[in-house]
Amino acid sequence: MKKNPYKVLGIKEGASYDEIKRAYRELAKKYHPDRYQNNPLADLAEEKMREINEAYDTVMKNAGGNYQYRPDYEQSYDNSNASKGTYGQQYQQQQQSSSQSKSGYNYQHQYANESDLENRARMYINSGNLNEAQKILDRMKNRNAAWHYLQGLVFLRRGWYDRGYTNIQKAANMDPANFEYRNALNNLNQQYTGYRQNNYYRNSYNSSPDMCNLCINLWCADSLCECLGGDLIGCC
């Protein structure tokens, strides 16, 4: 059974364009695939995102008029899908190459190659088979930036964030020019601040201005006025 698109977006029927867009933007932010990187629930988030996109399309069509594209998030969502696409391609290429090597060379030979091991580990991580990935990582002798990165990904997926962070950080330090490692590290920091600065918390008493702040602000304003020759508070 298909869900009511208005319910999916959490809006009333007959909502205005702006309301629909705002609701969509909020939800897209919440279920954005970037937020669910290295998360065992990534597939569920993706499904949810698809549902929201469909609902948005339907609702906008119902609202009539000349809508063509979804705002901002759609694009970045497609981009991240595209990056997944390249992953997929890599994966296929790997499979092809490994099947070639299986027919061409002997089996042992294939394992001797470190970068081949690295690719296989990556493949297992992408498919969520962490145990196999870990086995391969343990066999790799060359503990370079790529190794630390992959090991970090395995840890993160496991829920071992302390070690995950340490490894990703190490990878980024060892190879500062690598965009992928830096990106992963930024993403981790982003998750941290993103959660700490969520709307609920930000609007609560915990972060609202207190009386001291008020006094300081007034004092600053007064000083500024005085600098310019005026005066805000007459007595000081």
Partner: peptide
């Protein structure tokens, strides 16, 4: 703090889903 907050951010992600 990082370890704790990151764990919580994962709790929150699951909750969102």
């Amino acid at each position: 703090d990082f370890s704790l907050t990151y764990s919580l951010s994962e709790v929150e992600k699951a909750y969102s889903l």
